[in-house]
Design a protein around this nucleic acid. Structure first.
Lengths: 173, 173
DNA sequence: AAATTACGTCAGCCATGTTGACATATTCCG
DNA sequence: CGGAATATGTCAACATGGCTGACGTAATTT
């Protein structure tokens, strides 16, 4: 204000632009996630289930035969929290447990037919949403979306996740 | 299996590829959001605050003079839920309320100096995370990231959000 | 003057996260 | 073989942050 010629008016302040750009990146992520997770809740509510159940069902479906500790590592919650969700899903016949062959302490998890049916139903709306966004944005944009999201993930996790994305659906030990 | 020549081996099944691609899009969003939101919690916990306070502080900081109902529309929670958070933030001196000039029923919200300080502290780690991801991915990828995320948002919301992103930081009535 | 709007508040419920302590079965290792 | 480590489960208590429903007040609109 006191300056005769404000430097900010001569050249657009790069720090300001940067901050603005970054905040938009934050907010887009917030809004997208907000709307993305909103949809399946109605289906779940009717069954007396919540988002936590959706996440468990999704990843068990994605990695048939996953162990409890692997699932914990993906969800990053405590075993007590997972246990509540998981035991309910087993009780109600969505998920089946069997002891590991190599290591009989493990409980390998997989969806029952009922579980698979629910998984399909829950994921359908989200798949459609992503599909539409991909289609409208184009292949190049999709590559950018993937690249940036991957960069947002904790560095120590990135390798693991890339491996998981690749090996998914092939079943585990 | 029973087919003499499996069609899936001649041409890669486009439905399968599509499903795989879409699921990766879902999972990347999950992992990125998981790690993105994780960081500021430690700071908040020391102050006896939670994620809900962070969101309120963030958007009040971003839209100085925002009304309660506008904030509700952004967060998509009930007024009762917001009230709990907001009244605590006012009580502890992070947010200041003043009546609207045109409409004195409104309570226009803005951060106090204390609130601004906390906002900066909280947003710093997230800004840095986005900045790093942007830098590593490149400008073209950033454009794609924005395009796809925008496409994931509810269509009825998109216009509003674009307007918000543009007008942010210029203050409201 | 009546209806609507913006906001707030009280009360209670539910889902889902947390910590801490402890139990059991199995596997690994010296 | 026997003890340590591992995979999993369980009980109890608590915090956060959503939700619904009901009701109240001040200001604005009609």
């Amino acid at each position: 204000m006191a300056d005769v010629i404000s430097p900010a008016k001569l050249a657009p302040n790069p720090l300001f632009l940067r901050d603005e750009e970054l905040r938009q990146g934050i907010e887009l992520l917030f809004y997208a996630y907000r709307d993305f997770t909103g949809e399946p809740d109605a289906i779940l509510a009717k069954l007396g289930l919540g988002r936590a159940h959706h996440r468990a069902i999704y990843f068990v479906g994605r990695h048939a035969g996953i162990t409890v500790s692997e699932l914990l590592a993906i969800l990053k919650i405590t075993k007590q929290s997972l246990s509540r969700v998981l035991s309910q899903l087993v009780l109600e016949g969505y998920i089946h447990q069997r002891p590991g062959k190599r290591d009989r302490r493990q409980r390998l998890l997989e969806l029952t037919e009922k579980g698979k049916e629910l998984e399909r139903q829950l994921t359908r709306t989200q798949r459609e949403r992503i599909a539409r966004a991909y289609r409208e944005a184009g292949a190049e944009a999709v590559a950018g979306y993937r690249k940036v999201l991957l960069g947002l993930i904790d560095e120590t996790e990135r390798r693991k996740i890339l491996a998981r994305l690749d090996s998914a659906g092939k079943g585990a030990a």
